[in-house]
C-alpha cells in the first residue's frame, strides 16, 4: 500500500509542479489574502503576532481547499479513478498518496506565505520559531489527512464540489486554533502559555483525521456514481 501511495503522490507532484498543473492559483489566492489584510494596517502600524498567524492560517486553509480539489480532479478527466480502484492495493493508498502530495504542496505554499506574512504584515521571526515550525507540521498533517478524505467527496457532480469547503472548515477549527495559538510564537518573542497542550490537541486531531481517512475512504471513493 505504501509503495502504491508513493507512486500516486509522485505522479501528482509531477503533474502539479513539473507539468504546470496549477499550484499558481492557490498561491495567488493566499498571497492576495495576505496583501489585502496588510492594507488594513496604517503605515508604520504593526499587527499582533496572533493576528498575523491567523491570517497566515487562513491563507493556508484556502490554499488547502484548492490543492485537494486540484489533486482529485486529475483522476476525473479520463476516469482514471476507475483504474486506481482496480489496482492491487487497498483503496486507502489513494487517500494516502493524495494526502502526501497535498502535504508537500501545502508546505511549499507556506514556504512562500511565511516570508510574505513577515513582509506584508510587518512581522519578524521570533526565538520560538522551532516550536512554531513543529506546530506548523502537526497542523499540516491534519489538514492533509482531512483534505484528502473530503477532496474525494467533492469530486463528481458540480453541486458536491462546494461540500469540500462547507464540511472542511468547521472540522478544521480546532487544528487552526492550535496553529494560530502556537504559530504566533514564530512572530513573537516568547512561547504562549499552554503551548504543549495545543500541540497535544493538534496531534490528537491528526490521529483522529488519519483514522477517519483509513476507515471512511473506501465508502467515499468508489466506482458507483
Amino acid at each position: 500500500m505504501v509503495a502504491a501511495s508513493w507512486h500516486i503522490a509522485a505522479k501528482d507532484l509531477r503533474l502539479c509542479l513539473v507539468r504546470g498543473g496549477g499550484l499558481v492559483q492557490a498561491l495567488l489566492l493566499g498571497l492576495l489574502l495576505l496583501f489585502v489584510f496588510s492594507l488594513s494596517q496604517q503605515v508604520g502600524e504593526t499587527m499582533s503576532a496572533q493576528g498575523a498567524a491567523a491570517i497566515f492560517w487562513l491563507s493556508s486553509a484556502f490554499c488547502q481547499v484548492l490543492v485537494f480539489n486540484m489533486l482529485y480532479s486529475l483522476e476525473e478527466v479520463n476516469a482514471s479513478r476507475l483504474g486506481l480502484l482496480l489496482m492491487p492495493a487497498p483503496v486507502q493508498a489513494v487517500w494516502l498518496g493524495k494526502g502526501l502530495a497535498g502535504l508537500v504542496l501545502l508546505l511549499l505554499a507556506q514556504l512562500i506565505f511565511l516570508p510574505a506574512s513577515v513582509v506584508f504584515l510587518g512581522q519578524h521571526i521570533g526565538a520560538a520559531w522551532p516550536q512554531a515550525l513543529l506546530m506548523l507540521f502537526l497542523v499540516d498533517v491534519g489538514m492533509a489527512a482531512l483534505g484528502s478524505l473530503l477532496g474525494a467527496l467533492s469530486q463528481g457532480q458540480a453541486a458536491r464540489e462546494s461540500l469540500l469547503s462547507i464540511v472542511l472548515f468547521p472540522l478544521l477549527v480546532p487544528l487552526l486554533l492550535a496553529g494560530i495559538r502556537v504559530g504566533s510564537a514564530a512572530f513573537a518573542a516568547a512561547m504562549p502559555e499552554g503551548a504543549a497542550s495545543w500541540m497535544g490537541i493538534a496531534a490528537a486531531f491528526d490521529a483522529l483525521f488519519c483514522g477517519a481517512g483509513i476507515v471512511l475512504f473506501s465508502f467515499i471513493y468508489a466506482g458507483d456514481d
Binding site: 507512486h7 505522479k11 509531477r14 503533474l15
Partner: peptide, 26 residues
Amino acid sequence: YLGHATFVYPTLSALENLAFWAKLYG
C-alpha cells in the same frame, strides 16, 4: 478492464502513462 474511459493522464506522455500503471502493479 478496458472500457469507454481511457484512464489516460493527458499531460503525461504515452510512456509515462504506461510507467505509472506498471509501477502501481509492481
